[in-house]
Amino acid sequence: MLDLLHPLELFSEETPVETTFRFGVTGLGKTLDAGSSEHDVQPGASVEAPLWLVRPLVGRSMASIKLPTIYGERYQRKLNAGADCVSLKNLAPYFYEVGNKLNEMWERSPIFSDFLVRTFRSRYYELISKGLNSMTGEEVLLLCSKLSVEEQQLFEGGRVSTVCFDSWLQMERPAAARLPQPRQTRKRSAEQAAGQPTLKQAIRV
């Protein structure tokens, strides 16, 4: 189910997908492609439409989609060879999310989902192999420059947990959270009883 309140999921729905319209659409030409000279989309035209628009169109068999190049054969070969070298952050920030959704409405190909799982597996191993709390800031930056948004969330989850846990172990608690110490009133009254001058009396003398 689409959760429109989650910002990242909304962004992922904006991913453009190349769509071939089987029927013409009146008045949508300039909306889908601002550089278009025509107001209408002609039958058989291929336009880049956002994912959220593609889903109902494909469901009603009014359009057919072409997989984005990142899922194409060339990138499949590249990702199979060494998934951890490819920087998904710039190429396809929502690689798994969009891939999974396309797979769902496109053809449910076992080969395609196998490819997605294989990519995630090798990249997940890379993400975790260094150990979460032994990484230096430089390594973290290097790693984060390659991760897709989903992987970034996963990684951040692990980092946040270890950082919270460590700071708890070091007893770094905010001062307000500490228990108030019982005030030691007895000592002062004992001093007074012994006849030692208090500050007020001393000033008066």
Binding site: M1, L2, D3, L5, H6, P7, L8, E9, S12, R55, P56, G59, R60, Y96, E97, N100, K101, E104, M105, E150, Q153, E156, G157, V160, S161, C164, F165, W168, L169, R173, A177
Partner: peptide
């Protein structure tokens, strides 16, 4: 539109706040 067994988004597993991930249960 998307089949009977529509999949969940990956982001739905991490709660609403996308900018700052927080632990579900803090060590404290």
């Amino acid at each position: 539109s998307s089949g009977p067994e529509s999949s969940r988004s990956f982001f739905s597993y991490y709660g609403r706040n996308a900018q700052r991930l927080e632990m579900v249960v803090a060590p404290e």
